[in-house]
């Protein structure tokens, strides 16, 4: 355990201090973690490529199906077709789903089953490197999928203004937030059964975060609840940017997601240290 043996003596109190600067400093070693993932993933490229089809199917289904049933919806003083209304919501939720999948399922497997991290920590890599590396990996994959989704949106003509290009960084930020928290949650999971709880958290977010229709459909109290939930931040931010509706609230959503990701990352690095270097 060379290189990382210093950690336990430092104790958990010293860890947060290491993490913040580490965000910028340990990138080179974290890259090794990414390299390993790419190596493993090269064999699964069919799986990777097939992931592009899912948003395409969703957009197509809503375009030919629900669009006709729902009609137009109000957005920022205009009315827009249902497809244009719902597409940013789907982009945000696909960013969430992808991030959660990468950061829970995959990481649980490596942490508990394949013991990949135990092997990594017997090299100069430290827990922070692993956390950063996995997060970078989730961001890379999430970015590619988000870009493809945005491309499909534009292709179908569901994009509202040229500002929609800003939806890309917004989707990546959404990925960051959920990947960070997802990894932190994974470090507390004990068995595959715990993944039922992940679905239990994700499905209500997916269904109720103003993804499919405006908040005004809900009673007032539910609107307040939804406004506090994480996916709503991503949905509202991406939908606002797509329509070119700039306001301070967009900055608010961004800060919410940024804090969520950083806290998740910090907790993850600390948890990995206690789990793997007891």
């Amino acid at each position: 355990m060379s290189g990382s043996t210093a950690l336990p003596q430092n104790g958990s109190a010293a860890l947060p201090l290491r993490i913040t600067p580490a965000l910028f400093l340990s990138g080179r070693r974290a890259r090794k973690v990414v390299e390993r993932n790419i190596l493993v993933y090269r064999r699964g490229w069919v799986f990777f490529v097939s992931g592009f089809f899912e948003p395409f199917f969703y957009l197509l289904s809503i375009g030919v199906g629900l669009n006709k049933l729902v009609g137009h919806l109000p957005l920022g003083g205009h009315t827009v077709a249902y497809t244009a209304y719902v597409a940013p919501g789907l982009l945000a939720s696909s960013a969430m789903n992808g991030a959660v999948f990468d950061s829970t399922f995959n990481i649980f497997f490596k942490l508990r089953i394949a013991k990949t991290y135990d092997a990594m920590l017997s090299t100069p890599l430290a827990p922070t490197d692993i956390a950063l590396g996995e997060l970078a990996w989730a961001l890379m994959r999430g970015s590619i999928y988000s870009a493809a989704f945005l491309g499909a949106m534009a292709g179908f003509g569901y994009v509202l203004t040229p500002w929609a290009i800003l939806c890309f960084p917004a989707a990546v930020l959404t990925t960051f937030a959920f990947a960070g928290v997802g990894m932190a949650a994974t470090s507390y999971m004990r068995s595959w059964q715990d993944f039922d709880k992940v679905s239990l958290a994700i499905i209500p977010l997916f269904l109720f975060s103003a993804t499919f229709y405006p908040l005004s459909v809900y009673p007032a109290w539910l609107q307040v609840v939804v406004r506090c939930t994480p996916l709503y931040q991503g949905v509202a931010m991406i939908r606002g940017l797509d329509a070119g509706l700039f306001s301070w609230s967009i900055l608010g959503h961004a800060v919410y997601l940024g804090i969520m990701g950083v806290v998740g990352l910090g907790v993850t690095a600390r948890r990995l240290a206690t789990l793997l270097l007891p």
């Binding site: 729902v70 009609g71 109720f208 499919f212 229709y213 459909v217």
Partner: peptide
């Protein structure tokens, strides 16, 4: 939720 928009 979505049904209310469809009904409308």
């Amino acid at each position: 939720g979505l049904g209310s928009l469809v009904n409308h």
